[in-house]
Design a protein around this nucleic acid. Structure first.
Length: 546
RNA sequence: UGGGGAGUAGCCAAGUGGUAAGGCAACGGACUUUGACUCCGUCAUUCGAAGGUUCGAUCCCUUCCUCCCCAGCCA
């Protein structure tokens, strides 16, 4: 299991001392957007924590706000959690607890701990005070229990319009913790709920609902993010005053931030709504579905989540760490194959016209179990435009006039002549090959500095390649609401080139390491039998730059 | 300047009274039919700062500095 962290230490302590017999955690998303890599951190934390202590984890939809939630999000969240590799013990919905929540609110009212308030939202805000000034009590604060009960009942029955009344906790308008200044427990919203329909027109607020949800499910360790730290006393107040049988405890950790990534659901939704991206699963999105489509694996994301640790200091993780784990995971899994992203035709002038030979190629030199394949070789091939320079800088090991390189799995070739178009652009190279140098023949008389990849022109399969760069360039915090104006206009590059014929029937999400390029994955939406489309999940590292 | 939190390397992050783990990044070098991988090496005399306690402090105490969160009928 992963390294120690302060929450795991707390759980271990609770288990050891017998404070808790069965560890129960939960992942409680609101179905108002798609899950992203930040959620993955929380999902892994909750599920793996429970697993480590033989406990249970619930997937619970915190669906208390019908205005923002819908079924599409519920489905996507379930799919993403499963894809990450986790099975929940119970599938729960906060909305299933609405009846009990209502009853518990009545308990609060009967104890004089809650009251119906007629103040408008603006008036409540004005009377809440400020960070340095105390709040003022609502004139409705001292209504009788009977009156409150009656009013609350009428709220539930739909006798009042939205905003006319709320149920508030009666705590302390002088508290230095603003959350304790008579927080709203229930608001009226005549809005259909994706699961309860029109059964309810009053909906519980987070601060009221969440602790009850946890208590109802017997959650022992309720893990949330830092911004809820000063809600914890409220959380404990609810559990206590609502007389819940179980006593869950809340622990807070720092949410994940990553370089060059927007991570708020609000912003991600904006990217989708404004059609800046192709949808929630656009490969440039940090959503689980986006990363999946780009070619990331659950294993890589899980390892990442474990390795970044869990702490309470705000931090921003280098995106390259995630990429590292993607490469590490795919290294032994993805077969190697050759793809030419920017083709340059090469004619081997001394190779027999019309001849094709089949060469042996290992599918993954680091994983011999992946076996071998045969690849065609003939007089005309494509190489990468970047692998030729007419006037190369020092230490350029690739092809240039007069220079010899190895074609991976094939022969040495030497550049003899450059063919240009009317504009002077290089459109073709005429090279010679040396039959003595065939790969696997044991030829050692000469060495070359460079090995390049290639594809036989008569067998090449056309394909599309999509390369991605960050949608935003760092500084999410600075640009805040104007982040849309900082979108990287070159976040996606679409190229057309060739792949080896033998990947013809690659299925959606099939992954390959294109030699010297990186790891690519077949796009599930755009790829077809006629036109293969590959997304680059991550490039190979390179210590070379021109 | 109310309340709640956090400050350990470029980025994450263990350690919490006995003399600074690990990963990523970076930089050297070896190897190489991927400028990849792998391997070897370098990378905090110091833990936000200053005092204090102690034989000994990242850890305990005091003061200070910096950053984050809270004034939704969002979660």
């Amino acid at each position: 299991m992963g390294a120690s962290n302060f929450i795991k230490n707390i759980v271990a302590e609770d288990v050891q001392t017998g404070v808790v017999s069965t560890v129960i955690t939960r992942f409680p998303p609101e179905p108002n957007g798609y899950l992203h890599i930040g959620h993955a951190k929380s999902i892994c934390l909750n599920f793996e924590l429970a697993t480590e202590f033989d406990g249970k984890t619930n997937l619970r939809f915190d669906d208390t706000n019908p205005l923002k939630e819908n079924e599409e999000y519920v489905q996507s969240i379930k799919e993403d959690v499963k894809w990450l590799g986790f099975d929940w013990d119970n599938l729960c919905f906060a909305s299933d607890y609405f009846p009990e929540m209502y009853q518990r609110a009545c308990i609060l009212i009967k104890k004089g701990k809650a009251y119906v308030c007629d103040l408008s939202a603006e008036q409540i805000r004005e009377k809440r005070g400020t960070l340095t000034e105390p709040g003022q009590e609502s004139p409705y604060r001292n209504r009788s229990v009977e009156e409150n009960l009656g009013l609350f009942e009428r709220m539930r029955k739909g006798e009042f319009v939205d905003g006319a009344k709320v149920l508030r906790a009666k705590i302390d308008m002088n508290s230095p913790n603003l959350n304790l200044r008579d927080p709203v427990l229930y608001r009226i919203a005549h809005a259909p709920h994706h699961r309860t329909g029109t059964t309810w027109c009053i909906y519980p607020m987070y601060d009221y609902a969440h602790p009850l949800e946890d208590a109802i499910e017997g959650v022992t360790h309720s893990i949330c993010t830092l911004e809820f730290e000063d809600h914890r006393s409220l959380y404990d107040w609810m559990v206590r005053e609502c007389e819940m049988d179980n006593t869950p405890h809340q622990y807070e950790f720092a949410r994940l931030n990553m370089t060059n990534t927007v991570m708020s659901k609000r912003k991600l939704k904006k990217l989708v709504d404004e059609k800046i991206v192709d949808g929630w699963d656009d490969p440039r999105m940090p959503t689980i579905s986006g990363l999946r489509r780009k070619g990331y694996t659950p294993e890589a994301i899980r390892t990442f989540a474990r390795e970044i640790g869990v702490a309470k200091s705000n931090s921003k993780v280098d995106e390259r760490l995630l990429e590292h784990f993607v490469r590490e995971d795919l290294k032994l899994k993805a077969p190697r194959t050759m793809a030419i992203l920017r083709p340059l035709r090469v004619v081997l002038t001394n190779y027999p016209v019309g001849q094709t030979e089949w060469l042996d190629a290992e599918n993954n030199s680091e994983n011999p179990e992946m076996g071998n394949r045969r690849i065609p070789f003939s007089r005309e091939i494509y190489i990468e435009q970047d692998d030729f320079m007419e006037n190369p800088p020092p230490k350029y090991f690739r092809l240039f006039p007069g220079n010899e390189v190895r074609l991976k799995h094939a022969y040495f070739i030497r550049c003899e002549e450059i063919v240009r178009d009317a504009n002077g652009f290089v459109v073709e190279l005429r090279c010679t090959y040396d039959p003595e140098t065939k790969s696997g023949s044991g030829f050692t008389a000469r060495k070359v500095k460079g090995t390049i990849h290639w594809i036989d022109a008569t067998h090449a399969l056309q394909a599309e390649f999509r390369l991605f760069e960050p949608l935003v360039n760092n500084a999410e915090d600075e640009v805040e609401d104007h982040f849309l104006t900082h979108i990287n206009p070159r976040s996606m590059e679409v190229l057309h080139g060739y792949v080896e014929e033998n990947v013809r029937n690659a299925h959606a999400y099939a992954k390959f390491q294109f030699f010297r390029h990186g790891y690519f994955s077949v796009d599930p939406k755009l790829s077809s039998d006629d036109q293969l489309v590959f997304n680059r999940a991550v490039s190979l590292k390179s210590s070379f730059s021109i």
